[in-house]
Amino acid sequence: MQVAAVKDYVGVPRDVVDNFHGNQLVFIGWDDHLMFCAPLAFPFPPTLRFGDIVEKVLPGAYGYHPDWAKIDWSKVEWMKSGEPWTPHFNRSLAENGIGHKDAIRFRTPGLTGIQGSCS
């Protein structure tokens, strides 16, 4: 729908990838672990190896949670834009088809947060 305005009204999007100095935004959420109140936002270069996110970045973000150490990464279920999806750990974000502002979720079967409350 058009914005009702006194003259042409065209919005300038504020978050286009060019504004991020070579990075792109990636959003990552850990399902069933609402101790982290919302999915997290990261600026990553598109050349970053996906495995590096899991191995080097996420521990700093999620490591506080007692479930973190119990994750069996071979069983983790991934989603991109709400659809099941399989990442290649040895490929870059770009090679994994992860675009600017993509939202990725992972579920860790068997782990349901503090006392099973999904916290």
Binding site: V3, V6, D8
Partner: peptide, 8 residues
């Protein structure tokens, strides 16, 4: 956040 619709 946004430009005015009355003065874009």
């Amino acid at each position: 956040h946004y430009r005015p619709t009355w003065d874009p």
